[in-house]
Simulated scan of single mutants.
Amino acid sequence: MLGFTKAMVLAICVATPAMAQDMAEGEQLFQHRCATCHGLSANGTGPMAPVLLIQPTDLTQLQQKNDGTFPVQRVVWRIDGREPLVSHGSPMPVYGDFFQGRDVTLKADTGQPIMTSQPIADLVAWLQSIQQ
């Protein structure tokens, strides 16, 4: 690795600013990939909701249900599949493969950097913008 230590690589990754998040692209991705279950307004009332055993989350309430802080890490990990899944499924299928793209860094709600793809970063930006 051209003489770089792990610490140097980590420092470069952490110091690299996150790419701009595109809320319009995030909304488009949501409408195409998520609205069937979560609804066009992201309130959990999509056309598939009545037939699901575990009802979709109202995504407009994520910040309110997390003591006023948007749960960036939890949202990213739920979308990309890093959040542990229960043995017989989870409230949301893993859609990480649909959102592959250039890696970017976001700041998690804990303040720590979190790596994700540009499409997920765009989705997170849009979800943050619709919090009530």
Rank of each mutant, 00 (worst) to 15 (best):
M1D: 13
L2C: 02
F4L: 15
K6R: 12
K6Y: 01
A7E: 15
A7L: 10
M8N: 05
M8T: 10
V9C: 05
V9N: 01
V9E: 04
A11Q: 14
A11K: 11
A15T: 01
P17R: 02
P17L: 01
A18Y: 01
A18C: 05
A20Y: 00
A20T: 05
M23V: 10
Q28A: 15
L29T: 06
Q31G: 14
H32R: 15
R33I: 03
R33Y: 15
C34N: 09
T36A: 14
T36E: 11
C37P: 03
C37K: 06
H38F: 03
H38K: 07
H38D: 12
A42W: 06
N43I: 04
N43C: 06
G46Q: 09
M48T: 13
V51F: 13
L52H: 07
L53P: 11
L53N: 14
L53G: 15
I54F: 09
I54G: 00
P56E: 12
T57A: 14
T57D: 11
L59T: 08
T60E: 04
Q61Y: 00
Q61T: 15
Q61K: 15
L62A: 09
Q63R: 14
D67S: 10
D67A: 13
G68E: 07
T69Q: 08
F70C: 08
P71H: 07
P71Y: 07
R74H: 10
R74D: 11
V75I: 13
W77V: 00
R78T: 15
R78L: 10
D80G: 08
G81Q: 06
R82A: 03
R82L: 07
E83H: 12
P84D: 06
P84Y: 00
P84T: 06
L85S: 12
V86I: 03
G89D: 07
P93Y: 03
P93V: 14
V94W: 00
Y95N: 12
Y95S: 04
G96F: 08
F98Y: 09
F98W: 11
F99L: 13
D103V: 08
D103F: 02
V104F: 00
V104L: 01
T105K: 02
L106R: 02
K107L: 01
D109P: 09
T110F: 09
T110G: 08
T110A: 10
G111Y: 05
G111Q: 07
G111N: 10
Q112A: 11
Q112M: 13
Q112Y: 02
P113T: 04
I114P: 02
I114T: 09
I114M: 10
S117T: 15
Q118P: 09
A121N: 01
D122S: 12
A125L: 03
L127T: 05
Q128Y: 00
S129R: 12
S129N: 11
I130T: 08
Q131E: 06
Q132W: 00
Q132D: 12
